[in-house]
Design a protein around this nucleic acid. Structure first.
Lengths: 150, 150
DNA sequence: TAGATTTACATGTATATACATTAAATACAA
DNA sequence: TTGTATTTAATGTATATACATGTAAATCTA
């Protein structure tokens, strides 16, 4: 195990709160690097994969862009342009929402479902490999992260 | 407390390992958004602040670009260009390393030290505010993150 | 209902990230 | 020593992020 102090060669932190913020940022970067490598060969980004999962979860019910935005992991990223990218790859369809012409309905295509299935097992295995914790520790970590956000 | 399932409106996860990966990504985005807001008025990014802290920790001993790169929180970001930005703002000095002319020595300036001091208290308070955990929980979380990375 | 406000999405723009390539200096090996 | 490999930093480039602005449609309000 490499403690955060060792990983970034910092002798000590002001207090555990400041340390945990740095630890989160560092661990996230570690995770994102690993995820990028996994997704790269498929020409899709981690957040694009996440959006496809959101759409599949809808079971054929169309979803608006703003609803996708709210559920994205990175709240600041641009759902509109991300969906455009997915459309260019043929993974989603867009259509004007009939009741409200401002809104846009987004649906996952067969091709989108196919790549999701293709990727899913790899991602799930990758995640398990990445997290060097036993089941009790993972549950604990999930609880602490939920609590941390308040 | 908002559980991750509620935050991103996902009913359930394949297993706690996949859940914790999503939880980390989501919590990180939450944190980065909060940090950006704090740093914005000072015209400096969180990673730039971090590099200034690394340099201050050197106590006047110059550091090479690659050594800074290794210690950055985001391993993939570009130390060379980040240092260029800090130099333009007058927060660091760059000079050719005498023993190895490939390397570049980086030093924090008085102005850099000044903005660090100015920001530090705000950042420390911000971090404490951000992390809704008691001291035991924060220590636990630090240990779990260290262990997670293996 | 006319005009103002709000909402939904798209677009513009500056910067950051991810990753490949280049250029110069050094180390190494025949 | 001379050519090759490696290291260090800078640069090029495509995409992503962060945030502001624009545009059209819907809603509110007087």
């Amino acid at each position: 195990m490499v403690k955060i102090e060792e990983a970034i060669q910092q002798k000590e932190f002001k207090d555990p709160y400041n340390k945990v913020v740095v630890n989160l940022l560092y661990t996230n970067s570690f995770l994102v690097t690993s995820q990028n490598a996994l997704f790269k060969p498929y020409g899709i980004s981690p957040e694009q994969y996440n959006v496809l999962r959101i759409l599949r979860g809808q079971n054929g019910v169309p979803t608006t862009v703003s609803s996708i935005q709210e559920r994205m992991l990175n709240k600041m990223s641009n759902a509109s342009r991300l969906i455009e990218k997915l459309k260019l790859k043929g993974f989603v369809k867009r259509s004007e929402c009939p009741n409200d012409r401002r809104q846009v309905d987004v649906l996952i295509t067969e091709k989108g479902l196919k790549i999701l299935t293709e990727l899913q097992l790899k991602v799930e295995k990758g995640n398990k490999m990445f997290v060097h914790l036993n089941i009790d520790e993972v549950n604990q970590l999930n609880d602490l992260l939920d609590k941390l956000r308040g």
